[in-house]
Design a protein around this nucleic acid. Structure first.
Lengths: 243, 243
DNA sequence: GAAATTTTATTTGTCTGACATTTAAAAGTC
DNA sequence: GACTTTTAAATGTCAGACAAATAAAATTTC
């Protein structure tokens, strides 16, 4: 691991990048212990606080983990799907909220991705996943459910659909898109009539998955997307004409 | 912004989380200036190095940026699609390489997502994007191209396809999946015969996009996925029987 | 009076040195 | 040999200091 002389950039950022490169290139492998902070400060010719700032940067990306005590130190972390997943949700959520992404754009992306999973899910969904989806549909039918709880259940339902594809890479990618949409979805208030409609479409999806009918799943998803966008439009229109 | 007392967790991690929550919940808005490090150490009752470690964690996630000098400080950063994109590529790449994700799984995910973009791209692709794809196809036909350059061109080609959908959220999600696959793709060595086949399919895709024919794009992509997986299988088989 | 220059204050970046806390291994005790 | 105590190594935290960058204020100059 070499030094990388460059002005006008934080030393801690440079050191973090050097270690990051070493991990990505495979020079440092999973569970390998990095040199101690004292050794790193020697090696890079900087003080320990600077090294620590660099290590914290890497820890924030789940690239390393640290342990205290003798035989402790910083270790290269095996990034788990959960780690990656939660990072993606945070990033995607902020990306949507900070960049004024239109509801239509986010919605289109989400359903496009979800429809990509549907055929695989129709083929492979487990009985367990199907049961989860039915349970969520049941919950959604409870009249005293808050809008937030309804949306949370909606997310669970769609996550099960995605997980049904049995492809962890797909699940990881999609989870971000689906969950990041939730704050936007929460802005749509659901009338009893709207919920009925959504639940009916969810049931159609579950039925189609049970029958391993990929085409019917797709049709229902297209319908659901259309309906979701219509709801958003209605809400937007009401905002313009509050009288 | 309150304190959150909890033992057995780094103070810097707790402080980072508190600020992160404030950003996500909207209590801190884009371009707003955080209190100075001195003020934050007062507010949280910790030392400045501890505050700095917390801030570096947030900087690593592009949640804040810092400026030196008078009227400098830490500012809430508007996460750009590029920021999010590069983070996603890093995470996805490590996720694939560290977790022994099979080539088939990664390949399936990638093509499933890409096929989700195809109909939109067939509808909306710009002339410019089409020209980029043609240019990449031409480059891929150069006989003296290294395998790495061929793969890089392949990534560019597919990125253009995805960007053609004209949906930045889709582009951001997909870019990670496509680029993270490149190291895996690099492990497949391409014979002249294989390249021809791939280029032919790329041309089919470009032609179909030019004709706005979504179905033909999909057919070609399915074909390309099949061929890619076959190539990977052949390579794996050769490894088992090197004689 | 206006423009250019200098000064000043503020803030982050970095360093030194120290102590606290945790943890595993070594040493000691029964 | 099993248990307890000690020790050493490492991260976590703190305090105080100086360097460097930068914008605003004060001063000088014409």
């Amino acid at each position: 691991m070499k030094i990388k002389p460059q002005k006008s950039v934080d030393l801690s950022a440079q050191i973090a990048q050097a270690i990051r490169d070493a991990i990505i290139s495979g020079k440092l492998i999973v569970d390998e212990r990095l040199p101690s902070e004292a050794e790193l400060s020697d090696q890079f010719q900087v003080s320990r606080p600077t090294v620590r700032e660099a290590l914290k940067r890497l820890a924030a990306q789940s690239l390393i983990r640290t342990q205290r005590g003798a035989s402790g130190g910083a270790f290269v972390n095996r990034i788990s799907f959960e780690d990656a997943y939660s990072q993606q949700v945070t990033t995607s959520t902020l990306l949507l909220s900070m960049n004024a992404v239109s509801f239509d754009t986010a919605c289109e992306a989400r359903f496009a991705l979800e429809r990509a999973c549907a055929p695989l899910s129709a083929q492979r969904r487990s009985a367990d996943q199907l049961a989860t989806m039915r349970a969520e549909i049941f919950r959604q039918a409870q009249p005293d459910l808050t809008d937030e709880a309804f949306c949370a259940s909606d997310v669970s339902f769609h996550r099960s659909l995605v997980d049904g594809a049995g492809n962890p890479v797909l699940s990881y990618q999609l989870a971000g898109a689906v969950e990041a949409m939730q704050p936007l979805m929460n802005m749509i208030t659901f009338s009893a009539r709207s919920r009925e409609e959504i639940i009916a479409l969810h049931s159609q999806i579950a039925d189609a998955l049970e029958a391993h009918d990929a085409h019917k799943v797709d049709v229902a998803l297209v319908e659901l997307e259309k309906y979701t966008r219509k709801l958003a439009q209605d809400v937007a229109q009401q905002h313009r004409k509050p009288a």
